[in-house]
Nucleic acid binder design. Sequence first.
DNA 1: AGAAACACTCTCGCTCAGCGAGATACTAGA
DNA 2: TCTAGTATCTCGCTGAGCGAGAGTGTTTCT
Lengths: 158, 158
Amino acid sequence: MGTEQGSTGAVDSSMRLVHLLRALTVELDLLGGEFANVNGLHPTDLRALIHLLDAARAGIEVTPGRLGEQLRLNSAGTTALVDRLERLGHIRRVRDTRDRRRVLLVVEEGAMELGQSFFGPLINGMVAVLGDFDAAELAVARRFLLAMTQVVTAAREG
Amino acid sequence: MGTEQGSTGAVDSSMRLVHLLRALTVELDLLGGEFANVNGLHPTDLRALIHLLDAARAGIEVTPGRLGEQLRLNSAGTTALVDRLERLGHIRRVRDTRDRRRVLLVVEEGAMELGQSFFGPLINGMVAVLGDFDAAELAVARRFLLAMTQVVTAAREG
DNA sequence: AGAAACACTCTCGCTCAGCGAGATACTAGA
DNA sequence: TCTAGTATCTCGCTGAGCGAGAGTGTTTCT
């Protein structure tokens, strides 16, 4: 094995890419875990906050039920999660006036800032290094990510 | 917002790439979680197996101490983890004859096959779709992944 | 309108992963 | 040999998440 040339060169390159991708996701996970630790959050809490921030930006209302569904938690776990986030002051429960069975989760100002403080520098850093890529290269990277995502989602369904 | 041209086009493209990357890591996490569930593993167990398989392939000996360090577990948690994996028949504890304080973790045949059954198809699928990329494009994807990894590791240290 | 069926959230009791502290087993240096 | 150091494991605890089921409010059917 190793770097042999010929017809297997492309496959070798691809394999190395796949391993690079995995290494990257591991690093991202670790980074998320560290951030969570520092802010007294659990990994699940962080994932929940990300989801809530995304939804807030998209103008979508989120209820405990929806949130738990996304995170694969049952109702009991979801309640506990929402309790934690509310106790930490990151979200607030608000009764939906239209369907008073439902509770809406609204993200507090501080949580938004927390998200910014974490993702902001990271995104800025990424955008900065991508400055070295021209339009065609960015398009290739995009094609690459889309292709990878497609394979993963296919694997998740099959 | 949207697709405007001019000097902000590159930044927009970069932002979209970053979000694509995040979406991909989320998908990968979910896939891993599902696999773990199906095989009676916890996320940590899966991460441990991946690490052990990588080390085995690289011919590196792994001890509980090293494993726990990698996974950010303390010694008690590590012992529990190794107990679980051993009980499931995925690994075996072997006393190091040279330094009899140490225990080496050896991966059993079944765990290797399990890893193959999970990562094999995924990697094959990825390599297959990468067949549409020529050498120059693969190089660009590689540069992209390296750049992203660099930013993440930098964020983890700073 | 009244009652049954349904939807959404929360409570209770439990299991088990991971932590802190410390015990145990072995090695290396004075 | 005695002491310091390293690797692993044991014990008791905290807390996330689960299953079951209890409210509480809403829709549908007669």
